[in-house]
């Protein structure tokens, strides 16, 4: 989950100033601090571990290269998250284009199979676990039908549990548009689930 606050013991603004002044080693702090979170967020958006790594690395690289554009009023983490979300959206768009032209089925990454087994399940019986796994898989497949923007908004809301204003801040949309995307995303998934049941 994306944290809402940074470590109060470290003055990130000072570190950013140092990086801007040419001390690239100061940037290592941000990598050590945020790489895991950014990679996890990218994985939730892309559902592919390799692409998530690529997204994290590219996000840090872009952040470093465009550090002059960083405004000191905002937090580095928010800025980095925004860069990562944009990168992931671009990647999802490209993936949809590839799917469109090649008519290939959605890639079945290993996440659904290798992930932790129902940590929140009350009844861990094999039958319940199997049902939960099936629902999860169907939900994951249904999410593939979302547009990159709908998907990012949906993941930020329901998986990262961010508020509407926080999502608006990260995506650069206004709150009304975020709500609209959320509604459409949920509607589209519901439609997909309905189709699945009929099939």
């Amino acid at each position: 989950m994306i944290p809402r606050q940074t470590d109060p013991g470290i003055d990130e603004t000072r570190l950013i100033r140092e990086v801007k002044a040419g001390n690239v080693e100061s940037f290592d702090y941000f990598v050590h601090r945020y790489q895991r979170r950014i990679t996890r967020l990218a994985f939730r958006l892309l559902r592919d571990a390799g692409e998530a790594d690529c997204a994290a690395q590219e996000s840090f690289l872009r952040a470093y290269q465009n550090l002059k554009d960083f405004r000191e009023g905002s937090t580095f983490e928010t800025w980095l998250t925004r860069i990562c979300i944009n990168w992931c959206k671009d990647r999802l768009k490209r993936r949809r284009l590839v799917l469109y032209f090649h008519q290939a089925p959605a890639s079945d990454d290993s996440g659904a199979e290798t992930g932790p087994r129902s940590p929140a399940t009350d009844d861990p019986s094999p039958e319940r676990r199997a049902v939960s796994r099936e629902i999860r898989e169907r939900l994951r497949v249904a999410m593939e039908s979302l547009s990159p923007r709908q998907r990012s908004v949906f993941v930020l809301k329901h998986f990262e549990e961010l508020s509407i204003p926080e999502i608006a801040g990260l995506t650069g949309l206004d709150s009304g548009t975020v709500k609209s995307h959320l509604f459409r995303a949920a509607h589209k998934i519901r439609e997909r689930l309905g189709d699945y049941r009929k099939a």
Partner: peptide
Amino acid sequence: TAVRDLAADGGAVD
């Protein structure tokens, strides 16, 4: 539960 699991599922990253 499935939604929570999917949200918590970090796959190979976790």
